[in-house]
């Protein structure tokens, strides 16, 4: 028995060949057979890093982020809106509270076992400047992102899995970008693929990256209430050399025209002041190093 048979998943009943198809299935527009039911693919294996999160990191994070609040919190201060809401002259105007938006100045919600910081998705993003002049320059980046992420649109019958998406220019900025022109690619990783990507990043890519001291982190003087500090997202960039270190790319690196750098965003459920610091605590539980600038 070879190694593949040993590691293969266990069946409760002996497998046998699929039954013969007597009446052929209806075909879709792409000439593919359409099954009688909506098939949705779920987890095919238990995930190592997800296990690590649920058995070790989550408990520790709850203890680390807990603040003892024996008394109920004070109700938030009522801030006067810019215009009098009862004045018929200004009734339908946009009427924000004075002093700008306050979402980033809210204190974090009390820590409970339910709202411990949790990784929701990882987004990879790459801008290809040459694609402004010729769209075909995006193809290499699309292939590389497909290989790294393993995601494809509607994969496993799930509508929410969007695969590798093309990013278009939002604004017309003279000499740099035009509106609606494809300029980059991005992909959202969720579920087991997200944990697999995190494991590969930490074990194969970051240790072999040259001159990498850690994900840069600003000093302690930065206020906790800035939008970046309170948004619950940690982002960093990887140089083009790093793409060649992903094992999915490494096996046939010469099939790609060139290597691309990428931005990685770790998007979590953390909110309130200092949310980014809590995300850093979460990520260091997966051995992502952080270093002061």
């Amino acid at each position: 028995m070879s190694a593949t048979a040993v590691t293969a998943a266990r069946h409760l009943r002996p497998t046998k060949a699929a039954p013969r198809i007597l009446r052929p299935l209806p075909l879709s527009e792409k000439r593919l057979p359409v099954p009688h039911v909506n098939v949705i693919l779920r987890d095919t294996h238990s995930c190592r890093l997800a296990d690590h999160y649920y058995h070790t990191v989550r408990d520790d994070l709850m203890y680390m982020t807990y603040t003892h609040e024996p008394h109920p919190r004070k109700p938030p201060r009522k801030i006067r809106p810019t215009y009098d809401p009862n004045d018929p002259y200004t009734k339908h105007r946009f009427n924000p509270p004075i002093g700008g938006p306050t979402w980033s100045k809210q204190p974090p919600p009390p820590t409970t076992a339910e709202n411990v910081v949790k990784l929701e998705r990882i987004q990879l993003h790459c801008m290809v400047k040459e694609a402004i002049s010729s769209k075909s320059q995006l193809l290499g980046a699309i292939m590389a992102f497909r290989a790294i992420s393993g995601e494809s649109a509607g994969a496993g019958g799930r509508r929410t899995s969007e695969g590798v998406q093309i990013v278009r220019g939002k604004k017309q900025i003279g000499g740099w970008i035009r509106q609606g022109v494809p300029v980059g690619v991005k992909v959202d990783l969720k579920g087991p693929k997200m944990w697999d990507f995190l494991g590969i990043l930490v074990e194969c890519v970051l240790p072999r990256l040259r001159e990498f001291s850690g994900v840069p982190m600003e000093g302690p003087s930065v206020a906790l209430s800035t939008p970046a500090s309170a948004s619950g997202v940690v982002s960093f960039g990887l140089p083009p050399e790093a793409m060649a270190l992903f094992p999915q790319i490494e096996v046939n690196q010469d099939a790609y025209s060139r290597m691309y750098g990428m931005h990685i965003h770790f998007i979590t459920n953390a909110e309130g002041m200092g949310a980014r610091n809590r995300v850093r605590q979460l990520l260091s539980g997966f051995q992502i190093p952080f270093a002061r600038k």
């Binding site: 998943a9 266990r10 069946h11 409760l12 497998t15 699929a18 098939v39 693919l41 779920r42 987890d43 095919t44 294996h45 238990s46 496993g156 019958g157």
Partner: peptide, 17 residues
């Protein structure tokens, strides 16, 4: 045992589709 059977079933669906 249940998880193993579930994963094996899902892996077969994946392999087929």
């Amino acid at each position: 045992l249940f998880e193993q059977a579930y994963h094996a079933y899902q892996a077969r669906i994946q392999r087929a589709l």
